[in-house]
């Protein structure tokens, strides 16, 4: 691997051309895409929230459905960002060769990768916001502090877009992404406090969850949505940002190695 592969990313506003290209495609299918993105989290939230919630008095000081809603805002953002960079990103990078076409124009790979990550974060942001909106309509959120969830969701989207793109850069085919979902994303969703408090887990596992990015997203979003100030804001933001930056750099190095040879 040479120094150019490992070089510091060189960004420009040209990444917005890539963002704009993806948003134009999305706009053609915006309604079905949004409904599809919303159906899954809503089924979890309403099904588990009302069904399971009816058997529980309160969880973490709030109704179970309110508890669950705050977790699902984060997990649906994670899912949406991961799907976008992996399945759609892989199509554009490998199958349709859209990235190659863009790189024949005066746009560099660094900007293509940045555009993809910011785009996936933007799209997942809409998914997170849609869940937040539903929670608000259902009366599960009443504090204006919940508006602070908006930047948290965008940061969460950036983090998981960057991490997912590492998989995209390594992937030989679409099948590869199943490993990431079944071995990383799904277990993370189960142990990061989305469905039940992390304190329910055995102590050694709690140590592991403390290193997972989704845990930190939930730790920020949950208090904010119930009108409280999260504790350890700086730590949570730093962990999410660190995953985003490290994931992005790794994804960039791997895509440079894959495409610029």
């Amino acid at each position: 691997m040479n120094t150019k592969t490992l070089a510091f990313p060189a960004f420009s506003t040209r990444h917005l051309h890539v963002w704009r290209r993806n948003s134009l495609v999305w706009r053609k299918l915006a309604v079905p895409s949004m409904l599809g993105n919303l159906a899954d989290p809503l089924i979890y939230m309403l099904g588990l929230g009302y069904g399971l919630g009816a058997m529980l008095s309160d969880v973490g000081g709030m109704s179970y459905i309110a508890f669950l809603a705050t977790g699902i805002v984060c997990s649906s953002t994670m899912m949406s960002a991961s799907f976008e960079v992996m399945y759609s990103g892989f199509s554009r990078m490998h199958v349709q060769k859209t990235w190659d076409a863009i790189m024949n124009a005066p746009v560099t790979l660094d900007d293509v990768v940045l555009g993809e990550v910011v785009w996936a974060a933007s799209k997942s942001f809409l998914s997170g916001m849609a869940v937040l909106l539903v929670a608000w309509v259902l009366g599960l959120v009443h504090s204006p502090a919940a508006l602070w969830v908006i930047p948290v969701v965008f940061l969460t989207g950036l983090t998981f877009a960057s991490l997912g793109l590492v998989m995209t850069a390594l992937s030989p085919s679409y099948d590869f992404f199943m490993y990431y979902f079944t071995l990383v994303i799904t277990p993370m969703m189960l142990v990061s406090g989305v469905f039940f408090p992390v304190s329910q887990l055995p102590a050694p596992l709690q140590v592991v969850t403390a290193f997972l990015p989704l845990t930190h997203a939930v730790e920020l979003a949950r208090p904010l949505m119930s009108g409280a100030v999260p504790s350890g804001i700086a730590l949570h933001v730093c962990v999410l940002a660190a995953y985003a930056v490290a994931g992005f750099y790794l994804a960039l190095v791997l895509t440079r190695r894959r495409l610029l040879k």
Binding site: R21, L24, V25, K28, Q96, K97, T98, D100, A101, N104
Partner: peptide, 13 residues
């Protein structure tokens, strides 16, 4: 201007 060997027109447009 570049005309690549394999067509990479954007199929979404």
């Amino acid at each position: 201007g570049v005309v690549p060997q394999a067509d990479n027109l954007d199929p979404d447009f």
